[in-house]
């Protein structure tokens, strides 16, 4: 080994393993929570409790399903933004992890050279895709956060401004690309970007989880690696379903109905009515995991 070792070489092992670790905790865990929460815009439809406190007339007007979907999702978002302690610390940790994972990831990806053209093995495709999905994922995360968190409204067709109290309707407008909730061409592009981004990130996570087990030496035999591969594939499929579900859920939610429900919930809140049992609707751990809401 050379004497004047670079920082990367000197701390090679630690950096490599931290890189692997950060992908799972906290980033991977956050991804699971985030997609589960967001997918409530679909499965909230069968969450009867979410509509209990609502004006029955409103529920009937927008439909019970929509009321449940928007109601559940808004409840989650509100909880996270208002009740999770040290949200800012969690947010910083996550941000640092993503930055660390991304920067090192790019550095490491540049040490290899894909050769799927010659060696068209499934494993090799995953290797290449892992790197592509990393790059795409980074761009997507930046766009996603910049537009919905940092308020870079110029990047959103229609220029919708994010507000967690109006999360459902804002998202629907952003994805469709207009304030009115009508489809626009740019909106379709944004939706496709989300579809791609979510897909890539979920693949990156599931495949990364599979390779991490090899890197750390958890799965050794080919059979163990295959078994773990099934688990990772199942997890990936579940997350993919959640992610795509959320996306389609927001695309097809009625903007006006969502607004109405959001207004209703705000009114209730200002009247200090909080349904105590609604809190227990989602396990406490997940509340913390989804700390930074879309």
């Amino acid at each position: 080994m050379t004497n004047d070792q670079s920082f990367m070489n000197k701390h090679h092992f630690l950096l490599r393993r931290l890189h692997s670790l950060t992908g799972i905790v906290p980033i991977g865990l956050f991804l699971i929570g985030h997609l589960t929460t967001n997918s409530s815009i679909i499965w909230g439809a069968i969450n009867g409790r979410a509509t209990h406190a609502m004006d029955p007339e409103l529920v009937e007007g927008v439909g019970k399903a929509t009321a449940g979907q928007v109601g559940t999702f808004q409840h989650e978002v509100t909880f996270i933004n208002e009740s999770v302690p040290f949200l800012i610390l969690i947010e910083i940790t996550l941000w640092l992890s993503i930055a660390f994972h991304s920067i090192l990831g790019i550095y490491y990806a540049r040490t290899g050279k894909a050769n799927t053209k010659r060696y068209e093995y499934q494993g090799n495709w995953r290797y290449t895709l892992q790197r592509i999905s990393g790059y795409v994922g980074i761009l997507f995360i930046v766009y996603h956060v910049a537009t919905l968190r940092w308020g870079w409204t110029w990047l959103i067709p229609g220029g919708t401004k994010w507000d967690y109290e109006y999360a459902s309707s804002t998202l629907a407008m952003a994805l469709k690309g207009s304030e009115t909730g009508d489809w626009t061409f740019l909106g379709v592009l944004v939706s496709l970007l989300y579809l791609l981004g979510v897909t890539m990130l979920v693949f990156h996570f599931a495949n990364g989880l599979w390779t991490a087990a090899i890197t750390w030496g958890v799965t050794i035999t080919a059979k163990a690696q295959r078994n773990w591969g099934y688990v990772c594939a199942a997890l990936g499929a579940g997350l993919m379903a959640a992610g795509w579900g959320a996306l389609f859920g927001f695309l097809f939610v009625d903007v006006q109905a969502a607004k109405d429900i959001e207004e209703e919930m705000l009114r209730k809140k200002s009247a200090d009515i909080v349904e105590p049992e609604a809190v227990s609707m989602i396990p406490a751990t997940e509340h913390t995991l989804v700390a930074i809401e879309a």
Partner: peptide, 24 residues
């Protein structure tokens, strides 16, 4: 454990596919 070692593996697993001796 050091640079160029085991951590540089990208798990494409091409190695095992092309190994003429079918070494695991």
């Amino acid at each position: 454990a050091g640079p160029g070692g085991i951590n540089n593996c990208g798990n494409s697993q091409n190695c095992v596919k092309v190994c003429p001796k079918e070494i695991p």
